Simulated assay, not measured.
Amino acid sequence: MEVSRQKLWTKDFLIVSLINFTITLIFYLLMVTIAGYAVENFNASTSTAGLVSSIFIIGTLFGRLGTGRIIGDWGSKKTLFCGLLLFMLATMSYFIALNLPLLILNRLIQGIGLGIASTATGTIIAQILPPARRGEGIGYYSLSAILATAVGPFIGILLTQLFEDYRMIFAVDSVLAIICFMMYFIVKVPDAPKNANKGADKAGLKLSNFIEMRALPIAFVALVIGFAYSGVMSFMTFYAKELNLVTAGSYFFIVYALVILASRPFTGKLLDARGANIIIYPCLVLFAIGMYAFSAATSTVVFLIAGALIGIGYGNFNSVAQAIAIKVTPNERLGLATSTYFILYDLGLGIGPYLLGFFVPTMGYSAIFLAMVAVIFLSIILYYFLYGKNEKMKQINI
Rank of each mutant, 00 (worst) to 15 (best):
V360F: 04
L65A: 03
M291N: 02
N244L: 12
I343S: 08
I96N: 15
G364Q: 11
L370Q: 15
P153F: 01
I116L: 01
Y384I: 11
I125V: 07
L85Y: 02
L158C: 10
K194V: 14
I116F: 11
K327G: 12
I326E: 10
I326P: 09
C180N: 14
K198N: 11
A200D: 10
A293D: 08
A117N: 06
A219H: 05
W74A: 14
A35F: 03
L102K: 04
S366V: 12
V302Y: 01
G350I: 05
L386W: 06
K389F: 00
S234R: 06
Y384P: 04
L271Y: 08
M168K: 09
F56H: 10
D201H: 15
P131F: 05
P353A: 04
K77F: 06
I305M: 13
K7P: 04
P190I: 07
T300I: 14
Y345M: 08
E391I: 01
A257E: 05
W9P: 00
A257K: 11
A97M: 14
A374M: 08
Y239G: 06
T33F: 08
L309N: 10
L336D: 14
T149V: 10
L18V: 00
T298V: 13
G72E: 11
T119R: 04
M31E: 11
V32N: 12
L80E: 09
N244Y: 11
L80K: 07
G226Q: 01
K202A: 10
A222C: 12
A38R: 09
F42S: 00
G199K: 08
Y239C: 03
E391H: 00
I343K: 00
F210D: 13
T119E: 02
C180Y: 03
L114H: 05
I381F: 07
L286G: 08
N195R: 15
G315A: 02
G290V: 01
K269Q: 02
F62Y: 11
K206E: 12
A150I: 12
V360S: 00
L286V: 03
Y239H: 09
A49H: 03
I305E: 02
F227R: 12
L378V: 15
L8Y: 00
S45D: 04
G72I: 13
N41Y: 04
N318S: 00
R133E: 10
F154N: 02
S366L: 06
A297H: 10
G307E: 11
S208Y: 07
Q322Y: 07
M236Q: 05
A177W: 07
P282M: 01
Y37E: 05
L349T: 03
I254K: 08
F163C: 02
K269F: 01
T91K: 03
T22V: 12
R264Q: 05
I343E: 09
G83A: 13
I23T: 05
V375L: 07
V302M: 07
S263L: 07
N316Y: 06
T123Q: 01
K11H: 04
A257C: 08
W74L: 15
F238V: 13
T60K: 05
A240M: 09
L98N: 11
T33L: 02
P190R: 04
Y37F: 14
I312N: 01
M168N: 14
F154Y: 08
F294W: 03
F181K: 09
A288D: 05
L223P: 04
A219L: 05
F185P: 09
